[in-house]
């Protein structure tokens, strides 16, 4: 019973993050696939950064950025009356940054595998670029969309360091499953640690299995 607030909070965080990130990643991935801009490698490098940076670096900068004494954090405090750090909203912002590559890369790979002649044919038949995107590219890239959604969700569920740094460890507010496990181990509550760890292990395995089964059928690769 004691673990339910952490599970509920984690699922809520993962759902909100996945919904927002897919909306942001879709145009970004399409732009990265089709643009001839010289800025492309720079933008690609920036979107991939959270994959290689240690969570402590992300956590440190996010803590500074969202602090009530920093311009962004202060503006947020004035508009909403709530601080960003150590709150659910702060966790969502941190997760958006942390999971960005997991949303963008599968979509980019999927869009890149849409054959150019198919797109050209659509245009020749009178489709506007918007029509061609919505009726040709998007349906063809649907597996990439699913992969992006599933991986973003799973990666957010597995988040630890960034959440601990910007969210602290507040029960029911910022204590997600991974932090609940950390707390359980620290307080020698191994029963709780086992239940949650085994749960996450099984969940992660199922998610990856789902992704690989789908990709075997579709030929869209993960990242």
């Amino acid at each position: 019973m004691t673990v339910w607030p952490a599970i509920w909070l984690t699922l809520k965080l993962a759902f909100v993050t996945t919904a927002i990130l897919l909306a942001v990643a879709l145009p970004l991935a399409w732009w990265l696939t089709t643009t001839r801009s010289k800025l492309r490698p720079v933008v690609e490098a920036i979107t991939t950064l959270p994959l290689v940076l240690p969570p402590t670096v992300l956590g440190f900068y996010l803590l500074i950025l969202m602090s009530p004494t920093a311009p962004f954090g202060a503006l947020w405090l004035r508009v909403t009356g709530d601080t960003l750090t150590f709150s659910f909203t702060g966790l969502v912002i941190a997760s958006l940054v942390y999971s960005l590559p997991f949303a963008v890369q599968p979509l980019q790979t999927a869009f890149a595998s849409v054959p150019q002649p198919t797109m050209d044919a659509a245009r020749t038949l009178g489709a506007t670029p918007r029509d061609a995107f919505l009726t040709v590219a998007l349906p063809l890239a649907r597996r990439g969309f699913l992969t992006a959604g599933v991986l973003t969700f799973a990666h957010t569920v597995g988040e630890f360091g960034v959440v601990l740094m910007v969210g602290g460890n507040i029960p029911g507010r910022t204590r997600v499953i991974s932090i609940e496990i950390f707390t359980a181990v620290e307080t020698l509550d191994y029963a709780t640690a086992h239940v949650l760890s085994l749960g996450l292990l099984a969940f992660s395995f199922c998610v990856l299995l789902l992704v690989y089964v789908f990709n075997r059928r579709g030929g869209v690769r993960v990242a």
Partner: peptide
Amino acid sequence: VVVAHGSTGALYAQIVSGAP
């Protein structure tokens, strides 16, 4: 009551950064 815990130094740093 809700109880959050950590090292004294970490909790102090959180309070200074606006923890509720």
